[in-house]
Design a protein around this nucleic acid. Structure first.
Length: 503
RNA sequence: GGGCCGUUAGCUCAACAGGUAGAGCACCUGACUCUUAAUCAGGGGGCUGUGGGUUCGAGUCCCACACGGCCCA
């Protein structure tokens, strides 16, 4: 069937060429987008053609209703859909025959004409001229159910975006959010910088890195797991407000909230502390939410989330104590282990840091509304400055929304001796088999020895933020081309053609 | 890694208790000058994910594998 369709189309293209029509022309002069037409002519009276109007618009034909000597169709462009109406008495016999013989659903066309409002009140282009801009070889997906097969959605996102408007819109929103973040930070004097993706040692997070090899020096390298340590080198060097928005890589599992290649932003501001970063976080995220929704309230997976400031602040110690009755600062490792076991948590690595992380995992889901979780213990925060009033904890916060970590920030540790000792502890853990423990970065220590001003740093997970703001249940819905288990192109094609194609 | 569910026409989905595989859309032919899930008449399209087994007979039951989804680690 698919093969027949393709054959038919190839024959059609041949006939077009014989008629002197290029099925793949070079450009088209558009005057309007679909949305501009709908906005500009919204005032028209139903049934009347605006003789003074002239528009030229292009897009893909998504539906087609023929009525003998006339036809209605919708074309879809980046901004939406617009209806067009073509009549034999207006375009002439020859052009109408061309339309009937050669124009079909899925084709990309350009149309020129006047604008009118149909009897049913829809803004419509009355076609004077139609030009074929591309003749696809494959059939479009079903017109009102779209594509539901997740495998096709992920492997062939272009088909998803053609068939499902909400998919196209989701990605529009994603890149809109990214643009707004840049807009916001640039307006505050932050400078977007770039740091290496290929690194000799990688750090700034607890994660297993991807390894690769640099032939020219014959050394193994890592893909970065975070941008933190290089951004701080910028601060040492004299930059005061920097950020980097880009991809990080962690060689770990896939889940609804994890993807090995993901996007984050890290922001550093000299002479600021974690309080300042909390304010920045609130301001930045409410700026985006209000710009997209026009209000501070959104609904995520049926749950209302209110970004109205100020957001709740709760200390990690207090929250775990309230919910599990265990004090992560005072109680013994044994007590914590006991609580974990009573919740049937399997603990593989039994150092204090991991026990605290596991305890937090148990209660994380209880935090729905935007909440700053404060003052994480030193053991689990090797890059954060100790709290000015309690050296057992750090000046750190995580932003938690809907049980998910959305952001992580500290008053940055700038004491080189303290940092060195923290790295040593991480190295111990690493040697004890914790593959996610951080690596010693001696050059980073050296940089700190030259002096880094007091600095506030903040990282935000862009994919998770986009999930929240587009009401997407899984991270793969907001990554345009997510990881999928590789099968060869031929296997993929066979899967859809079911062996009908002989080559 | 473990458990559960799924894979049938290009797409979205049916098919009782094991008995010749079906619908809508899409595609092709024809009718129709304000339709919008247009309508009407006709037509083509399937190795039921892959491999094995049970059976006179398997989309359906059993085993293995592949891919996907959900939950757990």
């Amino acid at each position: 069937m698919l093969k027949e369709f393709r054959e038919q189309r190839i024959q059609e293209i041949k006939r077009l060429r014989e008629l002197g029509i290029n099925p793949y022309p070079y450009s088209y002069d558009k005057t309007h987008s679909s949305k501009q037409i709908k906005d500009e002519f919204a005032h028209l009276e139903p049934g009347k053609v605006d003789e003074n109007s002239f528009v030229s618009v292009a897009g893909r034909i998504m539906s087609l209703r023929e009525h003998g000597k006339s036809a209605f169709f919708h074309i879809k462009d980046f901004e939406g859909r617009i209806q067009a109406y073509i009549r034999k008495d207006i375009v002439g016999d020859e052009n109408y025959k061309f339309f009937k013989d050669f124009i079909a659903i899925g084709d990309i066309v350009g149309i020129k004409g006047n604008v009118f409002k149909s009897k049913t009140g829809e803004i419509t282009v009355l076609v004077k001229e139609i030009k074929l801009l591309n003749k696809p070889l494959r059939p479009m997906p079903e017109k009102w159910h779209g594509i539901k097969d997740k495998e096709v959605l992920y492997r062939q996102r272009y088909v998803d975006m053609i068939a499902n408007d909400e998919s196209l819109n989701r990605f529009k929103t994603r890149f809109e959010i990214i643009r707004m973040i840049r807009e916001f930070l640039n307006s505050k004097g932050f400078i977007e910088v770039e740091t290496p993706i290929l690194e000799y040692v990688t750090g700034g997070a607890s994660a297993r890195p991807f390894e690769t090899h640099l032939n020219v020096f014959d050394i193994d390298m890592y893909l970065r797991i975070a941008t933190e340590l290089y951004l701080k080198r910028f601060i040492v060097g004299g930059f005061e407000k920097v950020y980097e928005l880009g991809k990080n890589f962690r060689n770990e599992g896939l889940s609804y909230k994890h993807h090995p290649e993901f996007t984050s932003i890290e922001i550093y501001q000299a002479y600021a502390d974690y309080e300042d970063m909390m304010n920045l976080t609130e301001e930045l995220i409410t700026y985006i939410v209000e710009k997209i929704y026009g209000t501070t309230k959104i609904v995520y997976q049926g749950q209302e989330i209110d970004f109205k400031r100020p957001w709740r602040r709760v200390k990690m110690r207090d929250f775990i104590l309230e919910n599990l009755g265990v004090d992560i600062l005072e109680d013994s490792d044994e007590k914590m282990l006991e609580v974990l076991r009573s919740h049937e948590v399997n603990v593989e690595i039994k150092d204090r840091g991991h026990l605290i992380e596991k305890l937090w995992d148990l209660v994380e889901d209880k935090v729905i509304q935007p909440t700053f979780l404060l003052e994480h213990p030193v053991e689990i925060s090797p890059l954060a400055k100790k709290h000015r009033e309690d050296p057992r904890v750090t000046e750190r916060f995580e932003l938690i929304i809907f049980g998910r970590e959305m952001a992580n920030a500290f008053s940055e540790l700038n004491d080189p001796i303290d940092q060195y000792e923290r790295f040593l502890k991480q190295v111990e853990l690493r040697e004890a088999g914790d593959e996610e423990a951080q690596m010693m970065d001696k050059d980073f220590i050296r940089a700190l020895e030259y002096g880094m001003p007091p600095t506030g740093g903040l990282g935000i997970g862009i994919d998770r933020l986009v999930m929240l703001l587009t009401d997407s249940p899984t991270i793969r819905d907001v990554i345009a081309f997510p990881l999928v288990r590789p099968i060869t192109f031929e296997e993929e094609e066979l899967e859809s053609e079911r062996g009908v194609d002989e080559k």
